[in-house]
């Protein structure tokens, strides 16, 4: 990367009919590591993600990614720049097979080439090989030919991470990847996140405080659309403002 930040926002604001979900956020998110965003419900975490990934246009302010102004860039163009995201509510191709899900994600790297009409292994590289290696990564090889909608909740969440990984993105936005998972599934998924983290920047929205403390490089605390604090897990744990606002003094 040519610059030392993954993301930079300047006075980023998004209002919904007067209510400011994200309010004047200026932040630089450094390259590398697991950067977690926490905050109480309604603090603007998901809205912030939606602005970064392009699902929502900001009301005002600017977003920079990899040194370029992407404030008004369409989502698919952001994805092509190496920015990938998962959603809070599982977002996969439910009626396609698990294999087809991943293959579509792998193939997306070549979008825009005429070779989509021709079975050209040479031009597209080894799609099948890459697909299989991702399936292996997320541990879904044995169910590859089943429909995605028939997977368990945890497996569906992991499949989505697999889709997000296919492009080998520089930056991953993971919106509550552990939501609704059993302890075993949580464990496997955390392991997966830690395994894929090196060489990338991961932005994580999560509620599981133990996991957050264990894997975060830095934590950003949002409250009512604004940044309350940024720091290492230890700093956040001992930050009085944070304790008052969010952790209720129990951490």
């Amino acid at each position: 990367m040519s610059v030392d930040y993954a993301f930079k926002t300047e006075h980023l604001t998004r209002s919904f009919s007067g209510f400011k979900a994200v309010s004047d956020v200026t932040i630089e998110i450094p390259v590398g590591g697991v950067r977690t965003i926490i905050g109480p419900n309604g603090a603007g975490k998901t809205t912030f993600f939606n602005l970064l990934s392009g699902l929502l246009p900001p009301s005002s302010g600017k977003i920079f990614f990899d040194g370029k102004d992407i404030t008004n860039l369409e989502p698919y163009k952001r994805a092509r720049m190496g920015l990938a995201r998962s959603f809070q509510i599982t977002n996969i191709f439910a009626k396609l097979t698990v294999y087809e899900n991943v293959r579509l994600a792998v193939q997306a790297v070549h979008d825009g080439t005429a070779s989509f009409f021709f079975p050209s292994r040479t031009k597209m590289g080894d799609l099948a090989g890459k697909t299989e290696s991702i399936l292996d990564d997320i541990g879904l090889t044995s169910v590859a030919n089943g429909l995605a909608e028939n997977l368990s909740h945890g497996d569906q969440r992991r499949l989505e991470i697999g889709l997000v990984l296919a492009r080998d993105p520089k930056v991953l936005l993971l919106d509550e990847p552990l939501a609704g998972m059993s302890p075993t599934e949580t464990h496997a998924t955390v392991e997966l996140i830690v395994r894929i983290a090196p060489g990338r920047t991961i932005l994580l929205v999560e509620h599981d405080i133990d996991v957050i403390m264990a894997i975060s490089t830095t934590i950003t605390v949002l409250q009512t659309g604004q940044i309350l604090a940024v720091g290492t897990p230890l700093e956040i744990r001992t930050n009085e403002a944070v304790q008052r606002a969010y952790l209720g003094g129990h951490v």
Partner: peptide, 17 residues
């Protein structure tokens, strides 16, 4: 196959690039 992806989930297809 991309058409099928669009049929199933436009948003996901968009966010895959």
């Amino acid at each position: 196959s991309v058409l099928h992806a669009i049929r199933e989930n436009k948003q996901r297809a968009r966010f895959l690039g």
